[in-house]
Design a protein around this nucleic acid. Structure first.
Length: 488
DNA sequence: TGACCCACGA
């Protein structure tokens, strides 16, 4: 068969197939948009059995599975394709990121670079930069930054915004600032990323300043801008600044639920409990974050009783508390010595099968210990996975709180035997135990291997030498007979 | 097809 004949045959085949698969293609696109996985699988099976799984429909099927988040099927079909374009690679990368599998996303990107005739585009870079950001792979991020420059995407707005976010997320504030300052064109997203990034990196004042600069230079703010700046106002207890932001929210009608939640939280943190409640009451629709923020507002302002009663109302209204809500409520119960409500919450948590979440386990251990029911703390503790550090720390603190120093020290030794990672909090929880047995000497001399181990571990996690004194200086020894300064 | 955003606390 000669060349032209082949071409004609292939054209005829295409024509014959086109009318058959075209409706399926649009159907698959619809399934992808509505994330109808079951229907997609059914149609896929139909296409296989009726022999319609042609080369033109396979990529559509990959995209559909990717949009439905069905990683396995998307990957399988993707691997079977003889040719893959940039668009398909982008969808695969996007799918992995949405699934939180950023490492897989990076691997697909590397495959893309190795493939012939397929280059990353202005859509690819924001995705993969986000993946390296999530993985905190700053060195990869820098390489990607370099790649965008050599491939002429170095001034693309979306690419630059994702670089800003990546540098901020990896704690490289200066580098983010350099990119931001060099940007010829900035969007509201660029500003928002800087505000949020400064706050997350501990520069709340700068975050507020950047927001003011943004407003001052006439950039049109959006919901994300205020949601980024309000936590900074709350942290700084800048009630007046927070009120001004609230004014802008009203003026520009940015009143989405997430904005109201951020306002409730800001007012609560600034001590404006009445204003927080006003925003909360005026919300048309409240979610678990709204309720949790308001509950936290009462706790922060010393009204734990109102926090508990709001928690009850929340459940009557049919809102399911999250692990954050539970953590707060258990803290409230502990501080009120309210074992009755604490046990109720525990029961609810078990019914909801939330009792295997580490944050909740830890809060339960802590609550029972503070209510002087250490045996209940232990019974929660024995059911934990015992690999994570935090429940151990809570148990250690619990023992110390109940003046059971020997038990705390024994528990710590067990922690070392079981190979659980220790951190500064472990040290903070443990050392008062030595104070309770009225002597810090054992730590420094008699139990030297343990002390050495603590300092070695802390030094390796912080990357430098940590002295005994430095460690003790950080530890609360207020009620204990020995103070760090006396140990020389 | 895409970049930024709310509650805890370790």
């Amino acid at each position: 068969m000669n060349g032209p004949t082949k071409t004609i045959i292939s054209k005829i085949t295409k024509l014959l197939l086109a009318p058959k698969t075209a409706p399926y293609q649009s159907l698959l696109k619809h399934y992808g948009a509505t994330q109808s996985l079951t229907r997609t699988k059914r149609l896929h099976a139909h296409l296989v059995t009726s022999g319609l799984l042609s080369t033109d429909i396979r990529p559509v099927l990959v995209v559909t599975y990717a949009n439905c988040g069905c990683v396995h099927n998307a990957r399988k079909l993707f691997d079977e394709l003889p040719q893959r374009g940039t668009l398909l690679y982008n969808f695969m990368i996007k799918m992995y990121i949405a699934k939180g599998a950023c490492f897989e996303a990076m691997k697909v990107f590397l495959e893309m670079l190795r493939s012939k005739g397929c280059c990353p585009d202005s859509y690819t870079y924001p995705f993969v930069i986000k993946a390296s950001s999530e993985l905190l792979l700053i060195e990869y991020g820098r390489v990607l930054h370099g790649l965008t420059l050599v491939s002429n995407f170095g001034s693309h707005l979306f690419v630059l915004n994702s670089l800003l976010a990546m540098y901020m997320n990896c704690g490289e504030v200066e580098e983010a600032r350099k990119v931001f300052d060099a940007m010829k064109e900035k969007s509201v997203v660029s500003w928002n990323t800087m505000i949020n990034g400064y706050f997350k990196n501990g520069f709340a004042n700068t975050a507020l300043a950047v927001f003011n600069q943004m407003v001052g230079s006439g950039v049109e703010i959006d919901g994300a801008s205020v949601v980024s700046v309000l936590p900074a106002c709350g942290f700084l207890k800048e009630l007046e600044a927070g009120r001004r932001v609230h004014g802008l929210v009203e003026e520009k009608v940015l009143g989405k639920k997430i904005v109201s939640n951020a306002l409730v939280d800001m007012y609560a943190k600034c001590g404006g409990l009445d204003e927080a409640r006003l925003v909360f009451d005026n919300m048309v629709e409240r979610d678990v974050v709204s309720w949790t923020s308001m509950i936290n507002g009462y706790i922060l302002n010393g009204d734990t009783k109102s926090a508990l009663s709001l928690f009850k109302i929340m459940q009557i209204e049919g809102l399911r508390p999250s692990s954050v809500t539970i953590t707060l409520i258990l803290w409230a119960c502990a501080s009120l010595n309210n074992l009755k409500d604490g046990r109720c919450v525990h029961g609810w948590v078990m019914k909801q099968r939330l009792d295997s979440e580490v944050a909740i386990e830890t809060s339960l251990i802590d609550m029972y210990a503070k209510c002087n029911c250490l045996s209940l703390s232990f019974s929660v503790f024995t059911r934990t996975s015992r690999k994570k550090t935090v429940p151990w720390n809570a148990m250690l603190s619990g023992c110390v709180h109940n003046k059971l120093a020997t038990e705390a020290i024994g528990l710590f030794k067990k922690m070392l035997v079981e190979g659980v990672e220790i951190n500064v909090a472990t040290c903070n929880s443990l050392l008062p135990a030595y104070g309770i047995i009225a002597d810090l000497q054992p730590l420094l001399f008699m139990e030297e291997p343990i002390a050495t181990l603590i300092f070695k571990k802390l030094a390796s996690s912080s990357g430098r030498e940590i002295s005994v004194l430095e460690c003790l200086d950080n530890i609360c020894l207020r009620d204990l007979p020995y103070r760090a300064s006396r140990i020389t």
